[in-house]
Design a protein around this nucleic acid. Structure first.
Lengths: 153, 153
DNA sequence: GCCGTCGCCTTACTAAATTTGGCATTAGCA
DNA sequence: TGCTAATGCCAAATTTAGTAAGGCGACGGC
């Protein structure tokens, strides 16, 4: 129920790289009949290994040329700051990811915006406007060395 | 050639959320005929707005329960450190993302591993073994507040 | 030794994507 | 004005892919 064989892994790898690969092509790639391959894909979905499918959009093509990471520290004297912050962040479309971390600060935020002007606006009007935000440190990305986010299957 | 109308954005949004939606369903959702919708999707692909499709795998289901960010500082006295580091990072399957940033350190690395033991191994045997790595700061993620990475279309 | 389950296969059927052709609108131009 | 080309859309027909049904062989429990 939880362990995958060699073919399952090949399927996951292929689907992660190309979520729209035709079942017959996938079947040939993994060395199984289309029916069996389809059954396995359905099983991998049902058992939660595959959470869904999505189109990969090109941020630069969409005018989102600037990738920025922000370290956020919260004022922990006020109650509910964490919940409030988390809720606000979920609503902000500029925020692609937000993680609560253990270490020198509280949240690591990944955001994509058009340019520095847009980031300035986001930082000043949205992030710093949130109650409880004590301190932020901004790291603009100069080069995306690796950004596919492919899981090792 | 570069600007999208309301329907294009609806298509991108829908495909980003569900890359395998049937063309007829997508057509109904955006209010166009299946043929026109298909034409638009093909155009969005051709013009690079859609970079590709992929299955979203569940890292926890795959035994990758620990998400870690690492800030890496390089020893800039040696030449080629940046290139060498970038190449090595591209080869490491544990590394999901790696960005060169402007600020207090050089690279921000996002990695997923099974647990702390696996991270220790990755840090000691792989990251710190790379030539030119001067200093690292590790931030283990305690809670993934937002991690879909959906672009605002 | 028998029966149930599992994984896989082939065949047949159904549903989807793609292609073709046609219509209306718009823009450029003599 | 009248002609042409380009664009965006649609419906119908064709092709292609997904899905369901049924059968075969291997394995394990009883």
């Amino acid at each position: 129920m939880t362990d995958l064989d060699r073919i399952d892994r090949k399927i996951l790898k292929a689907l992660q790289a190309d979520g729209r690969i035709a079942n017959v092509d996938l079947a040939e790639k993994v060395g199984l009949s289309p029916t069996s391959t389809g059954d396995r894909v359905k099983r991998l979905l049902r058992e939660g290994f595959i959470a869904g499918y999505g189109a990969r959009l090109d941020p630069h093509r969409l005018g989102l040329g600037l990738l920025v990471f922000v370290e956020v520290s919260l004022d922990k004297t006020t109650p509910d700051v964490f919940e409030k912050f988390a809720e606000a962040v979920k609503r902000a479309p500029e925020v692609l990811e937000c993680h609560m971390v253990a270490g020198g600060f509280d949240y690591l935020v990944k955001t994509r915006v058009a340019d520095m002007a847009a980031y300035r606006h986001f930082l000043g009007e949205i992030l710093l406007a949130l109650p409880g935000v004590k301190e932020t440190r901004t790291y603009a990305v100069m080069e995306e060395v690796k950004s596919d986010g492919m899981l090792p299957v």
